[in-house]
């Protein structure tokens, strides 16, 4: 089948909040699809509907050609899910957690053991395999959780913010695993707040905000959409920042962003560069750095949603998975 995942007009409300306001998605089999959006955009809700955990109030969705509501049991035989928060059984060891899943999926005791050992080794958890998961660090839990979602060799894998709380090494390893899975024919839908991650992994991206898909396309298409270029100016003397903002704003026709000591503004026309130089010179501003570069997904995001994503991985993200 062409599309591994298909959603049409998904609506889901929680009391007065509309978490999904009509989400449409189409994910081609064997590709990585990135669902990108800020906190509360509806990413988790979308994943939960697609993974049969939540019924939509309106609209419909299918995974592997099976309707997620009417044929939920069949869908569950195709999918693997790693939720936003690690869902391992803390009172069991790493091995026991994976054995449990393997046995529930119908593997024999011996086969479940082999599979558990394979996955634990693959996720660098072999040394901790015999320890209760409550003694694991946040990143270890996360990896165990990922391993658990792979026990059944899913055709379609849902990863809800899979690298939140992972250190850079673990994150890169996870990216490699995702790439390997896709090379083997698995379809991956992942949500992320990190544009870099979507840029690295996704064949296609949908940007969601307030329960709606507000843009979609390949990372390149999205970057091209905003005109594609960003002007960055750093004055030698930070006291000149207001003057730079005025100049850049006047030339670009939009309100610039001030990021510490640098002023950035998206521009559509590369010919603004000489104008900026002239005007800054006229204003007596000494420039330490002046650059015109292709806009990053970050800026695309900003121009689409009107707000930035988290600038960096915050400490809070890292703390979420650690033992209480």
């Amino acid at each position: 089948m062409e599309h591994a995942i298909r959603a049409e007009g998904l609506v889901r409300r929680f009391g007065g909040t509309t978490a999904l306001a009509g989400v449409d998605l189409e994910v081609r089999a064997g590709t990585v699809f990135g669902l990108l959006g800020p906190n509360g955009a509806g990413k988790t809700t979308t994943v939960r509907v697609l993974a049969t955990l939540l019924r939509p109030d309106a609209g419909r969705a299918s995974v592997g050609g099976f309707d997620v509501e009417r044929d939920a049991h069949r869908v569950r035989q195709l999918i693997g899910l790693t939720g936003q928060y690690a869902s391992v059984d803390e009172a069991l060891t790493g091995t026991e957690n994976l054995l449990l899943i393997g046995r529930l999926l119908g593997l024999s005791r011996a086969a479940a053991r082999v599979r558990a050992a394979e996955l634990l080794a693959g996720f660098h958890l072999a040394d901790a395999a015999g320890r209760a998961a409550k003694t694991y660090s946040g990143g270890m839990r996360r990896r165990l959780d990922l391993a658990a979602s792979l026990v059944g060799r899913p055709q379609v894998l849902f990863l809800d913010e899979p690298t939140t709380g992972l250190d850079p090494r673990s994150r890169n390893e996870l990216w490699d695993i995702v790439r390997k899975l896709v090379a083997d024919g698995v379809t991956v839908l992942l949500t992320t707040q990190y544009l870099e991650e979507a840029d690295q992994l996704a064949d296609e991206i949908a940007v969601v905000d307030h329960g709606r898909v507000i843009a979609r396309g390949t990372p390149e298409e999205l970057k091209a959409r905003t005109g594609g270029q960003v002007l960055a100016v750093r004055p030698r003397d930070p006291a000149d920042l207001p003057a730079v903002v005025t100049v850049a704003g006047a030339v670009a026709g939009t309100v610039p962003e001030v990021n510490q000591t640098t002023v950035t503004v998206p521009v559509n026309d590369p010919s603004v560069l000489p104008a900026v130089v002239r005007r800054l010179d006229a204003a007596g501003v000494h420039v330490a750095e002046l650059a015109l570069r292709s806009s990053s997904l970050d800026e695309v995001f900003l121009s689409l949603t009107g707000h930035r994503t988290e600038p960096t991985r915050t400490d809070q993200d890292v703390l979420e998975g650690t033992p209480a």
């Binding site: 044929d71 069949r74 195709l78 529930l104 599979r115 394979e118 996955l119 693959g122 792979l150 059944g152």
Partner: peptide, 28 residues
């Protein structure tokens, strides 16, 4: 990690039989 490939023979079943459900219960 050569073991991540999709190899589950797939003819998804529509629902769980009672005996299989009992086995799930015992595992849990």
């Amino acid at each position: 990690m050569t073991t991540l490939a999709v190899d589950r023979p797939l003819v998804p079943t529509r629902r769980v039989g009672p005996l299989t459900g009992l086995r799930h219960t015992l595992t849990l």
